[in-house]
Design a protein around this nucleic acid. Structure first.
Lengths: 140, 140
DNA sequence: TGCCACACGTTATAGCATAACGCAATTGAT
DNA sequence: ATCAATTGCGTTATGCTATAACGTGTGGCA
């Protein structure tokens, strides 16, 4: 369930924004994206936010709530969950030293959170799991 | 582990800010807190943020990352985990219709996330789990 | 042709958070 | 008692994040 909308061809702005996120080594804020695209004609925040909205809708990027920043989705064509994706909630581990983000998901966590919701009659729409800390390199 | 610092006597500003959060039925933004305390002499955002920083440190309030807002901690003197608290990560279910927030924790979720971290050598500092959706009343 | 949906561009504004300065009160060791 | 260190406080200014509201252009399609 909760499958992202299938990605149609991207528009020019969407392509540019996705490109910035794909090349980045760490989450990027909307205003940083704007700055990096000034040479491509970007002038206003809305150009970025509108592209981001669509990319989020397509499931191609994630928003990190605790950072107010964005990353390209790291698990396209990926590992588990059988055909395609449509995995459950994605969790993020964010290194506060080097900024790198690891993306993963865990069925058991999903089940537990779903179980709580079912029991309480809460209908989940979107779940954020973000672990801030130090990655193995930085914790050494 | 991760026990909040024991709460010393609160200062005047901390008491006022905590009062606003305690009486609120839903998360409150820093600027809303400011507005509600203008009659008590609050004039600037920093008065609020400084009090919030301390209350967060004492474990008396939580910040909701996906909302940029704050709530009083709902599980003082509480249910599980044996003596006192010192529970693990707290999760929030946030109703996007009525704004109410339910606070809970789940050991199994904690264990799974800790397990992932241990396996990856990631050292967690603070974890946010926020489920946005509709509460049972609003989903009806 | 006329309508609709959608992306886009621009200006303005709203909302969230902190830097940097200086003063006042408290504590606590000498 | 006094000095120094710490902590909270107040103020001004600034920066970062996000959206409202308006108008233009383009492509599909009855």
């Amino acid at each position: 369930m909760n499958a992202p909308i299938s990605p149609p061809a991207l528009t020019k702005n969407q392509t540019l924004v996705f490109g910035v996120l794909s090349e980045a080594e760490a989450p990027v804020s909307a205003y940083t994206i704007l700055d990096r695209l000034r040479d491509h004609g970007f002038r206003a925040p809305l150009q970025v936010y509108r592209a981001l909205d669509k990319l989020l809708e397509f499931g191609m990027v994630h928003r990190l709530e605790s950072l107010n920043a964005f990353v390209a989705c790291a698990h396209r064509e990926s590992q588990c969950c059988g055909a395609g994706h449509g995995h459950g909630t994605v969790a993020f581990a964010i290194c506060e030293s080097c900024g790198q983000v690891a993306e993963f998901h865990d069925h058991e966590v999903d089940h537990r959170l779903e179980g709580w919701a079912r029991q309480k009659g809460f209908r989940p729409v979107k779940t954020a799991i973000e672990i801030r800390g130090l990655c193995s390199s930085c914790a050494a």
